[in-house]
Structure formats: C-alpha cells, structure tokens
Design a protein around this nucleic acid. Structure first.
Lengths: 246, 246
DNA sequence: AAGTGGTCTAGACCACTCT
DNA sequence: GAGTGGTCTAGACCACTTG
C-alpha cells in the first residue's frame, strides 16, 4: 500500500503543480467521489493525501472556487456546488423581475438532423452534416418565457441522444461536464430584436409577429472549439440583459 | 525620517493586511504616482517599502490584477493599465452593418438640470440635486441612428458645462480623461426593448411607438464611483449587441 | 548576469463554526 | 475545545526577459 492514495499527478511540462492538483481534484469531483452539497476533506488532509504543502493545495482549491465548482466556508469546510458553473452563465440574464434565477427547463423535442448553414458555420462543420438538435422551453413561475433551439455536434454529444430528458435538470452545462466531459469555458452572446414566427409564438403563448428578443449564443470549450450553437427567443417586453464591461 | 516611506496603512477591523495594502497601492496609483503604461517598482521593493512579507504584497498585487488596474508580465514587471479606451467601450456595440465603427456625434442640448429619481440613485445623489444633462445624437453615414441622454455629476464635470461642444469630437471617455482626469474603469450596460416616445422618434426620423432598443449604461471610475448615467435609444431592427462571457 | 515575477514549502497564528 | 478555513511570514528555487 502506497503512502498516499493520491500521489502527485502526472503533469504536462509547463503546468504548475497546483494546476495539476486542481485537475486531479476536478476529476475526483466529476467522478462522483464527493456528491454536490457534501463537504470535501479538510485542506490539510487533501494536502498530505496528495503529498504537497498546504499552501499548494490551497492554491489548487482557489482555482476550483474561481471555476465555481466548490465553495469554501470559513470554519465549516469546502463544499461541492450543485449547479457547477452552469448558474454563472445565466448570471447576466434576466427575465421578468426575478434576478439571476435559473428558469425551469422542459425539452420539447430532440432529434438528430441535418445542420442548416448558420449553425454549421458556427460549429465548424459542413452544412447538411448531422448534429443533435434540441428544442427547449424555459419557464419562470410555471409560465413559458423562453424558447431555445440548441445545436450540438456529434459524436461529441452522443451521450445526449438517447438518455431520458426527464433526468436532465434545469441546467445543461453541468450535464455537459458530467456526461461528456465538456467544460464550457467561454461564450459569446449576440443580442438583437426580432418578431416571432407562428410556431414559436404558439409555444410561448403569444401572437405571431409579436416582438421578441433573440439571443444567439456560441459556447466554446477550453480548447476553443465551438461546442454549442443556441438561439433563445422571448417576449421583448420582459427581456433584460445586463453586461459588465471591464 | 521613518525607515519606510509607506509604512503599514491603517486598516479597519476585519480587513486583511493585503486588502489594506491593495487599497494603499490603489491610492498611490490613482494619485498619479505611476502613470498608465509605466512599470511599478518590483514586488520585493514594494514589500520592504510597506514593511510586509513578500507573499503578502503578492496577494495585494493579485487583487489589483483581478480589478484590472495592473498587469503583471513574467520577467518584465508590473504595469499600470490605461483606463478603458473610448473605442473599447463600443467594442461590442453594432448598429447596422458597420462593425465597431464609432458613430459621429452631435450634442443637441446641454443644460444643468435637476436629477430625476433614477439617474440620481445611480449616481449616488439625491433626487432634485443638479447635474449636467447632455442630449446627444449619433449618426452613421450621416443618418441619425442613436439618441443618448447623459447625466454627469457636478462639480466633477464642471469642465464640460461651458466649453464649446463643437470641439468635443465623437468620443466622450477620452475627453473625460483629458479635461477632468476621470478614467472610466468599468461599465455596466443594461439592455432592453421599448417603444419610442414622440420627441425621441422625431429626432431619429421614426414614427412614435416604433420599437427601440434601450441601453442603460452606468460607468464607474477606478474608485468605484458611478460617474455617468446614460440612456441610449435606437431603432430595434438595426440593433445588435455582442457580449463575450468568460 | 541581473532583475523580474511565478511556484513551492513549512510553519505560526488567527477567526469562525459546531458540539 | 476541536476542527475548519483565512492570514502572514521567511526563505528557496524556478522561469522568463533584458542587457
């Protein structure tokens, strides 16, 4: 039996030890070793477990905090966050008066379909190639308020073609991480004004031609690959979007 | 003469030493001790200057990096970042098909007036206090496309109450820096959709009730004070807004 | 070679939370 | 009081940039 269960992880040249540690912890975390809401071992324990100094382990944990994976509470412990990074992507999005609350989700359709020109270009694929298409309704207080068309490349998202959509929960990005190991690292939102087509209007309980906000999101993984093309529509009058520019 | 020019700063109970250090450095920085673009002294120098350990100074500098005030370059030094350049504030703003081009500006009115409730709250002043109100028309290709209502606090912006608006050019933020020494450091844009009132519609050459995009911007200086409340309106159909989320 | 920031260590002490 | 994370120190060594 080795002196430590989790000895120092292999690390690519140029990577810091605390970076490798954070990756190792992330792996243990995504692997379900510490379910969301539970406390991880004390930093001192983790440090000796991994055979590093306390300060180094602290830096690794700081990274996980920055990435929104865990939350540290003085005097209590280090806790695994439920929503992972998902909630932070909605951080600036507002609908109606409820600030930052993640709307409930209902997948209304799922199919493997041929890509139209625009999503294909975004995802770096050829028009006509097949990808996974999701249509999702989002509700606040039980009322439909947003309609989303989401394109996901295959075979990257194979894990999402047949699993039961009832088990997906309200946030997709944590699911991407858990089931496909894809971490959304960056996203670009494009906001403009439009009017609703007949089908979209019906799904949202509005009249055809009603003014709507149209948010097109491109999400990228750590490698810079575009891994999601999403178009979100909602009533223009209820729409807010807040951006912090630094 | 004391052993160090900048001994340990007074700190409120509960504040960490590195927090106080960051505040002290921020003060020296805002005071113009190190102009934008120049290098600050080495961390070791600063540490002995302030009578703290190297690690503590490093944490303070990390805070300044996080706040976007300085940039550290391995092997070179710690450099003071310039405030947000005017052009970068329009970076994500698009109107029509011309990407990122700063529209021409025409000040259509300027007055010292009593603050309504909303801008007063934003600026941290009382409703009814007086401030500088600008109304500005922005044109692309000679065509009016945006209408702005801008509130600026006095006496901070006294330099703008009587100078000739013809000399102002198309960008305000560089002017703020030149004439009032105010560097916009951070801004928050809130985007929503609305319809035009009669007066605004006339100024933009559109019909009253026409759908418009409404962008409310709050700009902050390095100290975190709100120094501008701005409402921009333009034809909803020509409006784009692109945001990068990291 | 000299000077810079980046990493890592080992330890002390403090502040907070729970029992 | 025991256990947790938060702060601070003092020093060693490494990696990068410049002359």
């Amino acid at each position: 039996m080795p002196a430590t269960l989790h000895s120092i992880a292999e690390r690519e040249p140029g990577q810091s030890r605390y970076g490798a540690l954070a990756a190792a912890l992330r792996a243990r975390l995504v692997g379900g070793e510490w379910p969301p809401g539970t406390a991880m071992p004390a930093e001192q324990t983790l440090a000796t477990e991994h055979g590093v100094a306390l300060g180094t382990m602290r830096r690794a944990l700081e990274l996980l905090v920055q990435q929104g994976l865990v939350e540290r509470i003085h005097g209590r412990g280090t806790f695994v966050r439920a929503g992972l990074a998902g909630a932070t992507m909605m951080r600036f999005f507002r609908f109606g008066d409820r600030p930052g609350e993640a709307p409930a989700s209902r997948i209304v359709s799922r199919q493997v379909a041929a890509l139209p020109a625009e999503p294909a270009r975004s995802l770096g694929l050829a028009k006509g190639e097949t990808a996974l298409k999701l249509r999702r309704l989002r509700l606040v207080g039980g009322e439909p308020c947003l309609l989303e068309d989401i394109w996901l490349p295959l075979p990257l998202f194979d894990a999402f073609t047949d699993s039961d959509t009832k088990d997906w929960g309200d946030l997709l990005y944590p699911l991407f991480a858990q089931r496909s190991g894809i971490h959304v690292h960056r996203a670009v939102d494009d906001i403009r004004f439009d009017t609703l087509g007949a089908a979209d209007a019906r799904a949202l309980g509005l009249a055809a031609g009603h003014p709507c906000a149209k948010v097109t999101r491109h999400a990228f993984d750590v490698g810079g690959r575009c891994i999601e093309h999403r178009v979100t529509r909602g009533d223009a009058h209820a729409f807010h979007y807040s951006v912090s520019i630094t």
